[in-house]
Amino acid sequence: MTAYFIRRALFAVFVLWGAVTIVFLVLRLVPGDPAQLILGSDATQAEIAQLREQMGLNRPLAVQYGIYLGDVVRFDFGDSYRYHSDAMGLVTEKFPLTLQLAVVAMVIGLVLGVALGVLGALRVNRLADRIVSVFALLSQSMPSFWIGIMFILVFARQLHVLASGGHGGFDRLILPGVTLALPLVAVLIRLTRSGLLDVVHENYIQTARAKGLSERLVISQHAIRNALIPIVTVAGLEFGKLLGGAVIVETVFSWPGVGRLLIDSISARDYNVVQAAILLIAGGFVLINLVVDVLYGYLDPRIRLGR
């Protein structure tokens, strides 16, 4: 178990290093001058030269990379040009709000996805199953920003039952939470349904039936438990995707989290904040993957012994 954990942890560090390097390379190697990019097209030559010096852009790429890695390890991403304060500080301040949204979406996704998936498996190839499958297809294919706008149109503008955006009480979490959860619901429906259908043919289910358990107990005590193992993994991985998807949903609902800050910073050319936000979300994603890997190895010994 320790060896397995160390292997996964090293891989997580490696992935983080890769993400940091990609961000560095994209900013430096893309055609155009980063200083020009930050200052905009109406900056004077002198201003650009000064910023180039300040950013260390005149030094060799390898030296820049070394300095950059050192800064990243110390969580130093420089200051925000807009707010004149620490870029990473700004991002971490907004992070709890994004996390809140992602957790709500995760809960909605798990409850709805597993419940509908079980329903589909119990009524396989019948009307309820077909409806659930169509619902999964729709949730997966409809653009989340459009679903969000439709929710605002119906629930805020027409019915006036929920607020269209902003941060506040629990009622303001419902619409963005459901919007963010829908793709996850689709994934979990499919996974639960097929997982349950696979498990049903196993010998231990027959044993459970043979000893006279009611069908309800067979499903709830025996079948679902084993179908749950892949759900744990996938739900963990999807949590990282929720952090990415939150960027769009936050923009639609004016939710003041990291995603909104990211998009605002992009239009304000505040690249220090952009870098900090991207790397914080990526870091969260990698960390969650690591936790899931370890958890999975714990739940299912076949995994950690397999490799």
Partner: peptide, 17 residues
Amino acid sequence: IQLTFPSILLAIFIASI
């Protein structure tokens, strides 16, 4: 590495530049 990075995030980052 790329798969452990939310793809929409990478796209947003590169597109912004």
